[in-house]
Amino acid sequence: MHHAHGGLSRRVSLIHPTALVDPAAELADSVAVGPYAVIGPRVRIGARTQVGAHCVIEGDTRIGEDNRIFQFASLGAAPQDKKYAGEPTRLEIGDRNTIREFCTFNTGTVQDAGVTRVGSDNWIMAYVHVAHDCVVGDQTVLANNATLAGHVQVGDHAIIGGLTGVHQFCRIGAHAMVGFGSHVSQDVTPFTMVDGNPLGARGLNTEGLRRRGFSPARVAALKRAYRLLYRQGLTLEAALAALDALAAEGGEGAGDVRALRDFVAASRRGIAR
Rank of each mutant, 00 (worst) to 15 (best):
Q80M: 11
G64S: 08
V130G: 07
R211I: 02
D256H: 13
I172H: 01
V43F: 02
R100W: 01
G59D: 01
T107C: 11
L260E: 03
A47M: 11
N145A: 14
N97Q: 07
A174D: 02
V188E: 00
A248Y: 13
I172F: 00
S120E: 10
Q186C: 02
A143S: 07
N145M: 14
L163T: 03
F105N: 05
A28G: 05
I39N: 01
A265R: 15
Y226L: 10
P79Y: 08
E58I: 11
G251Q: 12
T107P: 07
R218Y: 06
G203L: 14
A221Q: 11
I57P: 03
E101C: 01
P190I: 05
A266V: 14
R171D: 00
G253W: 09
N144I: 09
Q168V: 08
F102L: 14
L222A: 01
G52Q: 00
S215A: 08
L204K: 08
T104Y: 06
P198I: 04
T192V: 14
R231A: 04
R269M: 06
E249P: 05
S120A: 10
R224I: 10
L20M: 05
E58N: 06
Y226G: 02
G108Y: 09
V136H: 12
S267D: 10
A4F: 13
I15C: 05
P35N: 01
D195K: 15
I160V: 13
A272W: 04
V188R: 08
N205Q: 09
I271F: 04
A241P: 01
D187F: 03
S182A: 13
T235M: 08
A259L: 13
G6Q: 15
G40Q: 05
P23G: 04
L148F: 02
V136Y: 08
D95H: 07
V135N: 04
N144L: 12
D112Y: 12
G173D: 02
D121V: 13
I93K: 11
A259P: 06
I99S: 03
I57Q: 00
V33T: 03
F70T: 06
R48H: 10
